[in-house]
């Protein structure tokens, strides 16, 4: 396989995952802004969206103030925002197109149709009341993409690279979302005020990572606490967007890749090191290190893995 092909499959999945993550963040902001009592809080919800996706600086360079309308247009449609849903879907498709020969017809049709239909939507037509439907359509399309990928692609090196791209992006997103509001997850935060504020933040985080419902099943008493929410999103490997889940998957796929090629590259050892640390960690240790330190450290190591992978397999 060409190095460039591996890179394109990695980035195709990465961009598609990113589009889905941005979609989730916008859904949560939209919902929180609707239920929040004061206007100021509602602006915070949109600000978190910008921060979690790393778009706050780029946004401020372009807009003077944060308004729902301009955040939506910036995060959904802006061609010059490298993390807008539009850019992500287009990049995902361009990467797929450049490896048209390496992916199945089902996968190509999923990704191509999404792009064609998205490109036909005018920003003006997505008024606030139409936003939820539109976002949920994007989510559906991205599940279709992932379904086509899992159900039709041959389990060879191309598949492995596409999985690695997917989970590197997901892990990065989860860590950033948590990092943006890490103080909400500090254990001594449990007792401030009547707790309704915290409850709303915690459920917002869980929603942003598609985990509110499954949290209720994972923790039998179903009560939201900082400790449990943090543990769920960081260390519980049965939660599909937790850091542990992402790295268990990355480690598995790394092993497969190593076996497929008959040799282990340095990047694969970075992956297994990170997985081992997550597997053995307990929330106590995480809080002891400092939650923000822990998350920052994770983001750096996750990046280092992706970087080493691209070197080991001649992505450029």
């Amino acid at each position: 396989m060409l190095g460039r092909t591996a890179a394109s499959l990695f980035w195709m999945s990465r961009y598609h995952e990113r589009a889905q993550n941005i979609t989730k963040l916008l859904e949560v902001a939209y919902r929180s802004a609707m239920v929040s009592q004061q206007g100021e809080n509602s602006i915070d919800d949109w600000r978190f969206t910008l921060m979690s996706s790393g778009c706050d600086w780029a946004y401020q360079a372009k807009h003077d103030e944060i308004t729902p309308r301009s955040v939506i247009s910036f995060m959904v449609f802006d061609k010059n925002n490298p993390s807008s849903i539009r850019t992500c879907l287009e990049m995902a498709r361009n990467n797929a197109r450049s490896v048209r020969t390496g992916i199945t017809a089902e996968l190509w049709e999923a990704i191509n149709t999404t792009w064609i239909e998205f490109a036909e939507v005018t920003p003006q037509s997505i008024t606030q009341d139409r936003l939820p439907d539109f976002l949920s359509w994007i989510s559906q399309r991205s599940h279709l993409f992932r379904g086509a990928l899992l159900n039709t692609v041959l389990r060879d090196d191309g598949y492995f690279f596409s999985q690695l791209g997917n989970f590197v992006e997901r892990a990065d997103n989860t860590a950033r979302v948590l990092n943006t509001q890490y103080w909400v997850l500090l254990p001594d935060n449990d007792v401030v005020g009547d707790g309704s504020m915290q409850n709303q933040r915690w459920s917002g985080l869980l929603r942003a990572l598609s985990g509110l419902r499954s949290y209720r099943f994972a923790y039998p008493n179903a009560e939201l606490t900082a400790f449990n929410v943090a543990e769920f999103l960081i260390l519980r490997k049965e939660m599909p967007r937790s850091l542990a889940h992402c790295y268990q998957w990355i480690d598995d796929v790394s092993d497969d890749l190593g076996q497929f090629y008959g040799s282990r590259q340095p990047s694969l050892d970075l992956a297994s090191g990170l997985w081992r640390d997550l597997k053995e960690a307990e929330m106590r240790d995480v809080y002891q290190q400092g939650l923000d330190d822990f998350l920052n450290d994770f983001i750096v190591r996750n990046n280092a893995f992706a970087h080493q992978l691209s070197k080991d397999y001649n992505f450029a």
Partner: peptide, 21 residues
């Protein structure tokens, strides 16, 4: 394989493609 120019290189008079291996 569908290659672009940057995927190929010449070494000692022979043409090679850059692969993951």
């Amino acid at each position: 394989e569908l290659v672009e120019g940057r995927d190929l290189f010449v070494d000692e008079g022979k043409v090679f493609m850059r692969t993951t291996r």
